[in-house]
Design a protein around this nucleic acid. Sequence first.
DNA 1: GATGAATGAGGGTTCATTCAT
DNA 2: GATGAATGAACCCTCATTCAT
Lengths: 209, 209, 209, 209
Amino acid sequence: MGKKFTEKQIHILNIAEELIAEKGFEGTSVRDISAKANINVAMISYYFGSKEKMMYHLYHYRVQRTREHFAEFSEIIKDGKPEMQMREIIKYIVGQLFKYGQFHGFVSQELRRNENLKQELLVFYQFCVKKIDEVLKKGIASGVFTFAPKPEDILSIILGTTLFSIRNKNFMENYVRHSDDQSYIKEAEKKVKANMMLTVFALLGFVQD
Amino acid sequence: MGKKFTEKQIHILNIAEELIAEKGFEGTSVRDISAKANINVAMISYYFGSKEKMMYHLYHYRVQRTREHFAEFSEIIKDGKPEMQMREIIKYIVGQLFKYGQFHGFVSQELRRNENLKQELLVFYQFCVKKIDEVLKKGIASGVFTFAPKPEDILSIILGTTLFSIRNKNFMENYVRHSDDQSYIKEAEKKVKANMMLTVFALLGFVQD
Amino acid sequence: MGKKFTEKQIHILNIAEELIAEKGFEGTSVRDISAKANINVAMISYYFGSKEKMMYHLYHYRVQRTREHFAEFSEIIKDGKPEMQMREIIKYIVGQLFKYGQFHGFVSQELRRNENLKQELLVFYQFCVKKIDEVLKKGIASGVFTFAPKPEDILSIILGTTLFSIRNKNFMENYVRHSDDQSYIKEAEKKVKANMMLTVFALLGFVQD
Amino acid sequence: MGKKFTEKQIHILNIAEELIAEKGFEGTSVRDISAKANINVAMISYYFGSKEKMMYHLYHYRVQRTREHFAEFSEIIKDGKPEMQMREIIKYIVGQLFKYGQFHGFVSQELRRNENLKQELLVFYQFCVKKIDEVLKKGIASGVFTFAPKPEDILSIILGTTLFSIRNKNFMENYVRHSDDQSYIKEAEKKVKANMMLTVFALLGFVQD
DNA sequence: GATGAATGAGGGTTCATTCAT
DNA sequence: GATGAATGAACCCTCATTCAT
């Protein structure tokens, strides 16, 4: 269970996340944040100690929640057939990334600053690898998967491709039918999910019964 | 044909790239750059007009050269067999990304600030898509490829996965046998290339003759 | 008779004095004081109106008590022989300064800020001068003192030398045999008292009967 | 020979000294200094690195020069008769303190912050003690001095009394005939010198030939 | 009577840039 | 053409104080 924040603190974190995603950590001043959040400049220091520490809390908060969430999720699907499990995992990861896209869009930039976050993220990624590996092995054993690629390679593909699509909107939007930002996000997510399904299952040599 | 720079200007750009890759644009001061480049603080403004404009020149310079280079490259491979062409394209793209990894590592962050770069990069990506599409169609026609995934999806996978691997060194290094940074880079590049080969060809339903 | 303070207020004043003696007025924040005194930050403003006013109360409190104390003291010694009276006055003043050394150590710094304190201190000093003068005249009259230096000069010597000794511990400690801070203070006080006895009596041309 | 400063830097140091003497180090903001010195706020950091370092330079500059000056002075008087030497030393020390009174008036307050200065000042004081001791011994040997007080006690008296007089102007001015600040300083210095002459020579048991 | 959340002012410092030389 | 001194704006943070409870 993570640190508890007041509603106001969460409000600030959300605004901060938005702005940092847009302009980077150094490019975002505490004045920007306080102005947009309609609070006093001093509040960031008051609540979090410093701008830097606020950043840490922001990361920690997101990563912690993501980890917990994924743990619950993998519990839920643990009794399904391997192909269903794999399908769910792909949908889940891509979905989460799109949901918190603006966060994951800049998080890797900030890794260099924050050793703690690096570690937390690593632990999370390795948990994902483990889950993928379990499903993989089960599928191989039962014969529905005929190839056995490295689980970390599968995860790299899913994470990398999805993050790339989120970060390079102006490339992706040429291939996605959409009318506005809202619908773009939805359709882009669909496209990436379809791509990942196809790719991963091709890679696994999946054989329909 | 790009802007012509003096040797000193290129020297500054190289130092700047290095520092920005390490600490971000805002995190890198003109004093840092001038100190490391052994030039006067005023030189950046003097040569490029401003720090911001220097950034633009830096991006422009890199992207321009990459585009030219890829154009040459695709000319060279244009008469090969589709599977060979695809193999070369994958090797080429992954290789280039690893070569200029520090640049590509932060370029997406700077896209939000720089409309011009965005456009240039888009043109380049679309050129890649076109090339992939040509090879794809040729392979389908000749029967060596049995599936026809979207070319932009293939590109997304290659670019996304490679960039992810470069950016998340502390994740990747758990799966790569290496003794030092030098050897890590080499082995990581090998691993990503192998992964991409397997993946793309699986996706294409490649059938060995 | 001075202002009446509650126990809590006196507690705060004591803590404040301690901290201010150590780090100066501006160097001591109300947060420092409230933290060390285990009270709420708002209490200083609440009890005293402001930090500045608290300071005033602190000075007032000390000076007032010192004045009252000295008045009592001079009443007690008023019937002795002049040489005994002078000896007692010297011992008393030096003793008091050492006792409240941390206060007197910084009070002159704060004089510039506080007209009231300046006035109160002046009145006190002049009272001392008067007492010294009385003793002086009596001694001259009775022939035990053969010189008649200015009483204010005698006071300047006693106060100045003692305060200098308190403030320049790292100079004085080279000439004082001591094992720790506690013993240093004791020995330093002894040394200053001896010095002042010798000096003042030499100045007075004291003739033993 | 001390650090060399430009004219502008010395100008800043002088203004800073004035303000700090008046309002203390923490009570004086770099904006106060820059406003009064008619320079940009950034110049203090630019020239000295920080406000703190400026303070150090200020102290260092003054103490260094005082030490050098006193060394020269003591060379000059080294061949005189003891009573003349002692007289000159007293006049010199009191004179210097009055000359740089505003500096010496707050320096002891800042000792707690600045270990270096503490050390430099100590060395200077000990040099003074040594010189006084030499004169003392010579006088005793030649019989013009009949008592042998501790040299450090003599120095304490001279420094302490003089500093007290400078710091407690509103006390001293009651005993000094003066029309304005200028004349007050002059007369106060005279009074202190006379007092110290009398006192020290009384203490030494000086016997006119 | 007493508190903790919140405020606005001002703190020192660093920034990219300019200007006289 | 190139420099280093100097600038004003903006940075994050801490301050004493206030206000609703």
